[in-house]
C-alpha cells in the first residue's frame, strides 16, 4: 500500500513517520503543503512538529494550508487519515475531529514514554491490538490536554470514538495516570465514520525495542491490514 506524509513548514516528525512505514516495507511519499492535486494514497499521515511555528495556536494556521482542502475531501470520501501530535491538533482545528487541545496542566512540555489503554480495537488503526491492551508509546507535547464539552464527550462515548486512554502499567485509567490533564485521560479519538484518527502519542517513535518500545508498530500494521481488507478508500 502507499502512504502519504504531509509536510507543513515546521513539521518535524515527517521524516520519522516516513521512516516508520518504510521500515514496514510500505511505499511512502511526502506531500508538500501547497499540493492540491495528489492521488493514489491509501493513508495520509499528518505528522508532529510545529506547523507554521504553532503561532496563534497549535494547528491553527495549518488548517488554512492549501493541502487541507484536499485532505478534507479525502476524509469525506472515506480515506484513512492519522494525525499524530501536531497532526492531531491540526485535525481538531480543521474540524475533522471534535474537541480541542489545551496546554498541559503542568504548563510544561512533556517528553516521556506513557502507557495507553486500547479502548476500541475494532478500528482501521487498532485491529492488531487486543481490547483493553496496555501499550507503551512516548508523548512529546506542550498542548496535549484534550478537551470536549459534555455533549461531544457523550457522542464520543456512544460511538466508541475514544480509542486510547492514558493509564497505569496495569491499565488503570484513574486521573493520576494522566500526564497532561486530558479529559477522561483521552489520548486518541477517531471520527464517527472511523476513518480519521488523532492521537497525541507518537507510534513512529515506538518502532523497536532499541527505541524503548515496539508497540507503535501495531498502529501502522493495523492500517496496512485494514487497507488490505479494502477499508479506507484508495483515492484515485
Amino acid at each position: 500500500m502507499k502512504f502519504g506524509v504531509l509536510v507543513f513548514p515546521g513539521s518535524n516528525c515527517d521524516t520519522d513517520c516516513h521512516w516508520a512505514v518504510s521500515e514496514l516495507g510500505q511505499e511512502v511519499d511526502y506531500i508538500w503543503h501547497h499540493q492540491t492535486d495528489f492521488n493514489g494514497y491509501d493513508c495520509l499521515i499528518l505528522p508532529g512538529g510545529f506547523s507554521y511555528g504553532d503561532f496563534l495556536r497549535s494547528g491553527a494556521i495549518a488548517r488554512f494550508s492549501p493541502v487541507m482542502k484536499k485532505v478534507k475531501q479525502y476524509a469525506q470520501t472515506g480515506g484513512l487519515i492519522i494525525g499524530i501530535c501536531n497532526g492531531f491538533q491540526i485535525l481538531l482545528e480543521a474540524g475533522l475531529l471534535p474537541g480541542a487541545m489545551k496546554r498541559n496542566d503542568s504548563l510544561k512540555f512533556i517528553c516521556r514514554h506513557v502507557n495507553l489503554k486500547t479502548e476500541n480495537n475494532q478500528t482501521s488503526f487498532t485491529n492488531k491490538f487486543t481490547h483493553g491492551q496496555v501499550v507503551s508509546i512516548p508523548i512529546a507535547h506542550n498542548e496535549g490536554s484534550y478537551f470536549a464539552d459534555e455533549a461531544t464527550l457523550k457522542v464520543l462515548k456512544e460511538n466508541n470514538q475514544i480509542i486510547f486512554r492514558y493509564c497505569s502499567e496495569t491499565g488503570n485509567t484513574s486521573e493520576k495516570y494522566c500526564p497532561n490533564g486530558a479529559l477522561e485521560n483521552i489520548a486518541g479519538i477517531c471520527n464517527k465514520e472511523g476513518n480519521v484518527l488523532g492521537m497525541m502519542p507518537h507510534p513512529e517513535r515506538a518502532m523497536s525495542d532499541m527505541l524503548g518500545s515496539s508497540d507503535g508498530r501495531m498502529v501502522f500494521e493495523s492500517i496496512i491490514a485494514a487497507s488490505l481488507q479494502g477499508r479506507g478508500k484508495r483515492d484515485e
Binding site: N12, F109, E204, L211
Partner: peptide
Amino acid sequence: VYSQYDHMVQTNTLLL
C-alpha cells in the same frame, strides 16, 4: 529538566 526536552524526535535516541 530532560522530560521538558524532546529527546526522541528523529527516532535515533538509543540510550535515554
